[in-house]
Design a binder for these strands. Structure first.
Length: 804
DNA sequence: AGCACGCCGACT
DNA sequence: GTCGGCGTGCTC
């Protein structure tokens, strides 16, 4: 096996295949599949992944691998195979599939520079060149391009006085710490110390320490404790009394924090019953997907913890995905508390280095459990016993860039390899998941009761149109204002939720609540400021912005949007005594600020927590007795067929924040469309009815889970070009696909222009289309040239979650 | 994606 | 005659 097939780090159609390289003699036994290597590729050097080893190659003149970048594979055989699967499943490049599975710190950086040829040195150069180099022996390629002397430099290159160097940099910095240890027995140190001159007090201090403390200590600590100096230690090392060495250490994002040990709770009968089949699956090493459908506060987390515990008892590992872990320090707390140092935590709040360290702990088998966001699904465990996806319905599990994978699909794929269960947990499962559970594709496990037999909060839905009629034009209804005042008097806490997504895009009549919808697509129209038109983003429908509501003729028809700052201001006016913490992108930008704000709120330093999506989940504070949703509609009218589902889920989640403990909770939902089923039913916390109704609509409109979707988005700086290409693609697809499938388009994307590029799309709804993948590939190939030269972009999302 | 090779217009 | 524009095709 002295030939390696390598996937090179060049994400392009033409290089999306294996290239064979000779393995130099000295590395024949070192290089294994899954390792990164540096290989010569054309004139440059690039990073690559060894995909397989072989004896023979089709190709005759092979180049040699430059050098390995790892000492052990960073992708194990399972992950290599998973990468192949991802490639097929999401139509991405193989290199992109591999890159997405490893921490960002391991991504190569490239450097190109010119340097003096060693034997001739600076002297061989002309005066002008000498001036340019200005005493240095190398010069960055960018500088070469910027300089006026490019052709002169080229001359020198030809003469051999200069050379171009391509370098692959593994920009990773392992954090290292210096350690010191005695190398001779204590008596020996004593003896040495006695022989020291009087003035060598620093050396003596260090010796004294080691006489009473055998074993290693960090240099830092030694200096701090004994007052010795690094220089004295160095002397002692030279005298062969001590030795100094470095150790790789981990940045610990949770250092200086203690996690009080927690023990398993006693499960309720209901929890017990849900846990049993999961444990059975772990015990029998059989794969299977479970939907743990439990209302908010029903104790899903404890089931996760005990299932993981069972997996660990079988000597297995566990992956636990959560939507955005930094949002729920409580969750980390619970895991670290239960499994202490066996847990690695991976989320977007960590630095690149910290993420790498956590990943290394997994790779080195130092931890057994990983808790993390989407990408943690690729944790390089080799003996998985369970995969859990909490808040399964969350959109963040779908990656919105290449490779466009869904963590749920990856989880199920991995579970089949390992023979272990996947547990999808939610109080408001996605329709896709719930439908599969109904069809027994997944096993349905239900938790109907809240723990501590706390009641679900009482929900009031307030019709804001009515408020308007009675002359209240503020963003707080009379009821919400009264309840707020009451909480402040009783020193209880309130969460105010402002749903800001879909800012100012949809148009609604403030008098009757009528929202302008597309007559063909059953989604809301989007207001376009420039043309003053309302457009549908699925089909090509558009109308001028009306001045009067088509339903009730009122002229109080507006597009929508309110920001958290504005709410905060208004709160200050109407409730000046209230202490408010605002949480949005502005106030949580800095690392750790999120947690600080939450902690402050938990400690009772504020009466009201005001925020957007980010406060919808995971908050579990006993003193919250009121939850207010300022405008429940904003998300409802996004141009997305999942808008109702999202609204229902969000409202249910937010409502679940109230009254989880002893104090009973109340929820006030303000809306302009109280009669909408997703708002009405979320008020009743009635998922089953919502599910039934939404499924009917999905069936009627041919959306998931009844149909699969594929989205082709074309973008180009020229509008006409964009439209015509999309049109051709649409035609090609409609002519080639079966008559059961629906091809919609060409239509402008909801975000119709990004970075001065127009975006058009074609949406395919299908039930069975074995040729689809092939056709999509053909499209990409067909436009390859234009993609390359003309800046045309075609992106394909199989199973899209955002139709943007 | 880079980068070299190569084939046609305006210049020392 | 040559420098350099960027279209074409290759990278083991």
């Amino acid at each position: 096996m002295n030939i390696a097939s390598v996937i090179v780090d060049v994400p392009a159609k033409q290089t999306d295949r294996e290239f064979d390289y000779k393995i130099p003699e000295k590395w024949v036994s070192v290089i294994k599949p899954g390792m990164r290597v540096i290989v010569p590729f054309g004139p440059r050097k690039v990073q690559g992944f060894v995909s397989q080893l072989k004896e023979q190659s089709e190709h005759s003149r092979l180049k040699s691998i430059e050098e390995p970048m790892d000492l052990e594979p960073i992708l194990n055989p399972e992950l290599l195979e998973l990468g192949d699967w991802l490639t097929v499943e999401t139509l991405c490049y193989k290199i992109s599939a591999y890159q997405v599975m490893i921490p960002a710190a391991l991504k190569a950086k490239y450097e190109k520079y010119i340097k003096l040829t060693s034997d001739n040195g600076l002297n061989a150069l002309s005066e002008e060149m000498k001036a340019l180099f200005n005493g240095r022996d190398r010069m960055d390629w960018k500088e070469v391009l910027n300089s006026q002397a490019a052709s002169k430099i080229q001359n020198e290159l030809l003469k051999g006085n200069l050379e171009v160097v391509y370098q692959v940099k593994n920009k990773l910095n392992k954090k290292r710490v210096k350690y010191v240890e005695a190398v001779i027995p204590q008596e020996g140190i004593q003896e040495y110390a006695a022989g020291l001159p009087q003035n060598a007090s620093k050396q003596k201090a260090a010796c004294d320490y080691f006489i009473s403390h055998p074993g290693e200590i960090t240099l830092r600590e030694l200096i701090d404790q004994t007052g010795t100096t690094a220089q004295s230690v160095k002397t002692l090392v030279q005298k062969n009394v001590l030795k100094e060495y470095e150790k790789e250490i981990y940045r610990d994002p949770f250092e200086n924090r203690t996690f009080s040990q927690t023990n398993p709770f006693v499960l309720t009968d209901e929890q017990e019953e849900a846990l049993r089949p999961i444990n059975q699956s772990i015990n029998t090493k059989s794969d299977g997907t479970f939907l743990l459908y439990g209302i908010t506060g029903s104790g899903k987390t404890e089931i996760y913890l005990q299932a993981i515990d069972n997996a660990l008892k079988h000597g297995k590992e566990a992956i636990m995905l959560v939507p955005e872990i930094s949002l729920t320090p409580q969750m980390v707390q619970r895991f670290k508390g239960r499994f202490s140092n066996k847990v690695a935590v991976m989320h977007s709040g960590l630095s690149v280095g910290e993420k790498y360290d956590e990943w290394r702990k997994i790779q080195r088998k130092e931890v057994k459990v990983v808790v993390g966001a989407r990408s943690a699904i690729f944790a390089p465990f080799e003996n998985l016993g369970i995969i859990i996806i909490d808040e399964e319905h969350e959109t963040s599990y779908k990656q919105e860039e290449n490779p466009r994978y869904h963590a749920r699909d990856v989880a199920i794929k991995r579970s089949k390899y390992h023979g272990c269960p996947v547990v999808l947990g939610s109080a408001t499962p996605s329709l896709e998941t719930f439908a599969r559970a109904q069809k027994n594709v997944y096993t349905l496990l239900t938790l109907k009761n809240r723990l501590n037999s706390s009641m679900l909060p009482k929900v009031d839905i307030v019709d804001m149109r009515e408020e308007l009629r009675t002359g209240n034009r503020s963003m707080f209804s009379k009821m919400l204002f009264e309840k707020l005042t009451e909480r402040i008097e009783k020193k209880e806490q309130t969460v105010l939720f402002l749903n800001r997504r879909g800012h100012s895009s949809f148009v609604m009549c403030r008098d009757c609540g009528n929202v302008m919808n597309c007559p063909h697509c059953d989604i809301s129209l989007t207001y376009h400021r420039y043309s003053h038109q309302l457009k549908c983003h699925y089909c090509a429908f558009e109308v001028p912005m009306p001045s009067h509501c088509p339903e009730c003729q009122s002229d109080y028809i507006r597009f929508f949007g309110t920001g958290t700052q504005k709410v905060e201001e208004e709160l200050g006016k109407i409730l000046p005594q209230a202490r408010v913490i605002r949480m949005d992108v502005d106030t949580t930008g800095k690392k750790g600020s999120h947690e600080k704000l939450l902690t402050a709120f938990q400690e009772g330093k504020a009466d009201i927590l005001l925020g957007t999506q980010m406060i919808a989940k995971g908050l579990d504070f006993p003193n919250i007795t009121l939850v207010g949703v300022l405008t429940a509609d904003t998300m409802l009218h996004l141009p997305d067929f999942r808008a109702s589902e999202k609204t229902f889920q969000l409202l249910t989640q937010v409502s679940g924040r109230a009254g989880r403990h002893k104090l009973p909770g109340e929820v006030v939902i303000q809306t302009y469309t109280p009669e909408h089923y997703s708002i009405e039913l979320s008020g009743q916390q009635d998922f089953d009815s919502f599910y039934a109704q939404e499924m009917q609509l999905r069936k009627f409109n041919k959306y998931p889970p009844f149909y699969f979707l594929a989205l082709v988005t074309v973008s180009h700086e020229d509008l006409m070009k964009t439209v015509s290409v999309t049109e051709k693609i649409t035609k090609f697809l409609s002519s080639g696909l079966s008559s059961d499938s629906v091809v919609l388009g060409p239509a402008a994307s909801p975000i119709s222009r990004v970075n001065d590029r127009y975006r058009y799309q074609c949406l395919i709804k299908y039930k069975r289309e074995p040729e689809l993948r092939g056709m999509l590939k053909k499209i990409v190939e067909h436009y390859q040239k234009e993609t390359h030269q003309d800046g045309l972009q075609i992106s394909i999302d199989l199973n899209p979650h955002m139709l943007m």
